[in-house]
């Protein structure tokens, strides 16, 4: 019934409550509804605004999209693409889950790593992928992140990391848990060489990723309204039998309690990173 849509289109600004009406959906420019304010916006406009709504809502985006927003054009070189998960404890259904995650996300694992320039500053970059088992950390994610910090240490480069994760990947059992220690060790070595690590926490960052490399950066930035925490909100409610305070485990909560340096909206992120990278250039111990 899409052809009848024109009947319901507002005829002037007053019909839309005085706001300027969103343009009609063109066939090659579909509308996307904001889950926060319910306004429809053409994808082309969203793209211009780094996939944020005028109400401030940040749409969930793929790792590749984020890399496009942050890095200089054609500067990204991907690393460690061959590092993929196997099924270390032969967990029932896991192999199938991995293959459906691969086809759904078009990624080989839940993190994309590589080198890039951001405003001309060379750096290592990791971006987690929400469409791959909600960015959960198994051995491949742990291994790629560890290798990236080792590569950055060898080449005296800063690391910029975007986290999105439901936590450790339980289908890999303790091997997943051990990635927390392994990545922490690699972050520590990189840090000891006087090199910069900036983490940007996006919605959601929880569990074993929060309790390891997400919280180990020199500078911790967070996207507005992101859920960031260790334990799941429902588990806390069940444990404490108390209602959770408003805004619990959001970026704003993190900032208020002293666990994030700043909240940075997506359209500002590139400029903030350029300025931070610039200030730390040549700061390594070598």
């Amino acid at each position: 019934m899409a052809f009848l849509n024109f009947l319901f289109q507002p005829k002037n600004e007053l019909e839309t409550g005085g706001r300027s009406a969103a343009p009609a959906a063109a066939p090659d420019d579909p509308l996307k509804t904001c889950p926060n304010c319910h306004m429809d916006t053409p994808v082309s406009i969203l793209r211009e605004n780094s996939y944020t709504c005028t109400c401030g809502y940040h749409f969930r985006i793929r790792a590749r999209t984020r890399i496009g927003l942050i890095t200089d054009p054609d500067s990204f070189t991907e690393l460690f693409t061959e590092t993929a998960s196997d099924d270390p404890i032969s967990f029932p259904g896991y192999s199938e889950k991995l293959s459906s995650a691969r086809s759904r996300s078009q990624e080989s694992e839940a993190v994309v790593c590589g080198t890039a320039t951001i405003g001309g500053h060379r750096c290592c970059l990791f971006v987690m992928e929400p469409n791959f088992m909600m960015g959960s950390m198994g051995t491949a994610v742990g291994e790629r992140i560890t290798k990236l910090f080792e590569y950055a240490l060898e080449n005296a480069l800063p690391v910029i990391g975007f986290t999105v994760s439901g936590g450790a990947r339980m289908q890999e059992g303790l091997f997943s848990l051990m990635q927390m220690a392994k990545t922490s060790g690699a972050v520590r070595r990189h840090s000891d060489a006087g090199l910069l690590y900036v983490a940007l926490l996006t919605n959601p960052t929880t569990g074993g990723v929060t309790a390891s490399f997400a919280m180990e950066a020199d500078i911790i930035l967070a996207e507005p309204g992101a859920t960031v925490g260790f334990a799941g909100a429902r588990v806390i409610e069940q444990t404490t039998l108390r209602p959770l305070p408003k805004g619990f485990q959001t970026s704003e909560f993190l900032l208020q309690h002293g666990f994030a340096d700043a909240i940075v909206a997506r359209p500002e992120q590139k400029n903030v990173l350029i300025s931070l990278l610039g200030m730390h250039e040549g700061s390594d111990a070598k």
Partner: peptide, 26 residues
């Protein structure tokens, strides 16, 4: 497991664990 509570989150349960992992490694 580490305690799942409101205060624990307010005081940075994730950060506390992360810091131990990093410091114990060195």
């Amino acid at each position: 497991g580490a305690y799942c509570g409101i205060g624990a989150e307010e005081r940075g349960q994730g950060q506390a664990i992360a810091e131990n992992l990093m410091e114990m490694m060195a």
